[in-house]
Amino acid sequence: MEPAGIVIEKLAKIYSRRGSEVHALKGIDLEVRGGEIFGLLGPNGAGKTTTVGVCTTRVKATSGRVTVNGIDVRADAPAVKRSIGVVTQFRTLDRSLTIRENLAMHGMYFGLHPKDAWVRADELLADFRLSERAGAFPDELSGGMAQRVQVARAIAHHPSVLFLDEPTAGLDPQSRLALWETIEGMHARGITVFLTTHYMEEAESLCDRVAIIDHGQILVLDTPEALKRSISAETVIELRLETPNDALVERLRALPGVVSAQASGDAVRVLTASQDGVLPRILAEANGAGLKDMTMTKPTLETVFISLTGRDLRE
């Protein structure tokens, strides 16, 4: 018996579209442990949605193997579907049904007796503060509210694994925070959460472990803390200049206490180890190079991504 959770082995996916081949996933390996919140962080087009698609039986892998709770997704899709809940980045509520009917029908698809399905729907409506809109149709809801219904629906049948594909994309900050709370609630109840996002704050504040994916490959996998430690920098100093200045970047790299320096347009991002005097030395070098602005921050997962790929997550 394989462990609960998700095991992804050498997963590759090639899409053939109009004669050209797109390698969406290039043989990734991942193991999501039962009960954890696992984040797959990467820019748009990195392969996150394809990964979720294969795990949730909606995308056929070109090669490799995925098991969810020990069940092979290809060999037995219905058994996998029974134990998972899915929230995709699209609004997939049934527009012909009210919110309450959406929840109840979902329960019936998963074998609830109709009477129990309606009870469950009302329970979820109350839990998700949706009771007032029970009779509304999906098109009448705001984005945040529709997303809440989708999450409520995804857990209506008590899945043991919940997949959330870019769950907060396009949500207002308040709805985003509310959804984070909900996800933490699921976690507290022992549900395994597999989350994809391109918001590093989301991965950082929610996830027990994070894998960073880019161009269909996993670059690193660890706890957010360990990932941030791995770049061995204490502080990120960003300098904004009048004009790009490669010579300055070279000089900054040579300074003691500087871990790395990278140009990004008219800005220079300098990672520094905790060492006295490094800031004055940087400022002294930048003096005369048209320094407009400077910010100092702690390293984030975004810093990790940039130091791995040389690009911003949003690029």
């Binding site: 899709a77 219905p78 058994a79 579907k81 995709t88 609004r91 997939t92 509520l93 527009r95």
Partner: peptide, 15 residues
Amino acid sequence: ATREIEDRVMAPLPT
């Protein structure tokens, strides 16, 4: 347009 078939496709029976 709407992809709303998704929830029925995810019901636990063969597609």
